[in-house]
Design a binder for these strands. Sequence first.
DNA 1: AATGAATGAGAGTTCATTCAT
DNA 2: AATGAATGAACTCTCATTCAT
Lengths: 203, 203, 203, 203
Amino acid sequence: MGSAERKEREKHEMREMILAAAKKLFIKEGFEHVTIRRIAEEIEYSPATVYLYFADKDTILCALQELGFRDLFKRQQVLSAIKNPAEKLRACGKIYMNFAMENQEWYDLMFIMRAPMKAFESPADWNLGKDTYEVLQSIIIDCIDQGYLKAKDPQIACFSLWSLMHGVVSIFIRDRAPMIPKEHQEQVINGILDFTMSELLDK
Amino acid sequence: MGSAERKEREKHEMREMILAAAKKLFIKEGFEHVTIRRIAEEIEYSPATVYLYFADKDTILCALQELGFRDLFKRQQVLSAIKNPAEKLRACGKIYMNFAMENQEWYDLMFIMRAPMKAFESPADWNLGKDTYEVLQSIIIDCIDQGYLKAKDPQIACFSLWSLMHGVVSIFIRDRAPMIPKEHQEQVINGILDFTMSELLDK
Amino acid sequence: MGSAERKEREKHEMREMILAAAKKLFIKEGFEHVTIRRIAEEIEYSPATVYLYFADKDTILCALQELGFRDLFKRQQVLSAIKNPAEKLRACGKIYMNFAMENQEWYDLMFIMRAPMKAFESPADWNLGKDTYEVLQSIIIDCIDQGYLKAKDPQIACFSLWSLMHGVVSIFIRDRAPMIPKEHQEQVINGILDFTMSELLDK
Amino acid sequence: MGSAERKEREKHEMREMILAAAKKLFIKEGFEHVTIRRIAEEIEYSPATVYLYFADKDTILCALQELGFRDLFKRQQVLSAIKNPAEKLRACGKIYMNFAMENQEWYDLMFIMRAPMKAFESPADWNLGKDTYEVLQSIIIDCIDQGYLKAKDPQIACFSLWSLMHGVVSIFIRDRAPMIPKEHQEQVINGILDFTMSELLDK
DNA sequence: AATGAATGAGAGTTCATTCAT
DNA sequence: AATGAATGAACTCTCATTCAT
């Protein structure tokens, strides 16, 4: 009976379409233009149809967050090619901040926006976020193990570094650094990476 | 006759009431529920009355921000009592993060919230923010001058430290660290301060 | 299946209903009382529903104007049966003023009302108005060609005649002629036509 | 007892001030910016004060109309210097249209706007309008008497000419002549005067 | 499965007007 | 006489959501 399966598969495809449309709108037009109507238009279905696949708007936002973590996690995969843990750490920071700056509205949804955040209630969904976090964790542990970094508590070191990176990009994304013009932002990001690595790593 | 004075005082009190109501709504219901109508209900006046004291919604938000910057700046004044720049730096970080964690909704408005934030456009208003930033700047320069810190670019060092602190508190405020329970947050903040100081300062 | 057709027809009928309601309000209460809410009440739907059929208030006004121009143009068609250009000119004036006096609120909307009047910006919509104007133009040119009228500049002659007719009816419509009681208005219009023809045409 | 008189005079002066302010706003900023508040600001009194001198906004508008008629009538006074009735007729038209084009919003209030128009209910107020109309009437009668113009019914001739002039300026004021650019309007007005005079007057 | 039609709730804002002082 | 304070009633428009078909 492939009928039930097929239905399942079609349902899944439709959900993907909706999410892809929502993502596109987020990236192209920003949060405030992501309305059910716009999503429906994008996939050329009616608004009511969207509700057949998602209970409400929040549910869509949550699924989109998940997608974001998936994307970020995928970007992190290239790190496995780097052997030196110090280099790896730098690259990891770069990947994170690039993701944020290239997909500002999406990053916003994932890490800044107040909005739905049901995702963080159900542990299942949070797993994806955890995976990306653990990538950073294991690099830091490697750094400590191989003597690049002295830190009593790897958890604190890890959370500090994440905070630093999140701090930088969220200040930029929410426009709180009038002293740094837009065109210097990338340069500042690189400067911060240099500064952090030089301060952090044992010389 | 104190009649004019009394009028002035009453006007001022009304503004305070409105701001207090707005702040309360922020705390209780979050930004998106702060509407002129809700504020008016809260103070038991008509919506039109609110417009007698503030030109528009943005102006209210800005006044609230200003209040926040004023408070933060006042808190920073105790730093002048500390002579050692390294200790001063730590204390400065502590004050900043305490302010954020104790007044989360205010900090949110000042540094996280997406909003018109005219404050950051008109230099006059931004001055308050600049003042608080410059406190950090001058401490860092002292640290460098007195050999506690090696940093090629003090601006980058300063922005990094701000980012770190902002990152930590904004992750907490917007609930993005499910791995750290609320009751451990303060402890983590202290751990991060220790970690940062020990990594940063020359030994 | 005529289902699609029926839908189309129903949609059309709804638009007609809205326009009829708008027109009715114009007549009964004047421009300033024509609000989306009042229209919605009139047709016993919610305000939001109106927006399903018209993008905004302006669009409704424009549609109403268009309808008016269409009607006026249709009335002008009978002129083709008249061969003598002088007679034709008189008939044209009569048709114009009859239209205005019989559909005062419409005429008001088309030619008097202060309003967005996008119609006059987008050439497409203005075409309808242009068509009706050109009917007058070509009659006047015929009059000149066939020696009924001496005029150096046909454009000026044409604009003068339009102005005269518009002046008369707009004075009546906006109630600025207290010296002429309502019941004499038609008689005055005829008198003006006679006077104009006799002065204008070469004898 | 000059006290009562003085009060009366002061009351009158205040009314004049208010009207002058309203007139200024009409001319400078147009109808929609004439609000009680703006008027009050202009005279540096409070809105409530305005209500001590005028029952409501409509009453102010009516008084303003009256003022307009007064101004127009004053402009007409120069006509008495012209002896030839044909020249006088032309000059009268010119004065009328100049007044309209130079004070468009005010003319609008007097002759186009739907607004209050109580003025036309009370004959007392209408008298002023009548006076200006009679200026035109008597000129036309002179033209007929002195053989410049053949017209069976002077009333019809008079109303026709007023209509023509009103038609021209009201088409311009309400922007209904897209075929005539703003910078040509004056030229067209002169053309129409020429055309009218040449057609009308016996040669 | 898909949708056209409809709506309730709500947003910020403006204005003429009133009234106690 | 003058006014500061207050308000009710509007306005246009947008959106997530529902439901009969």
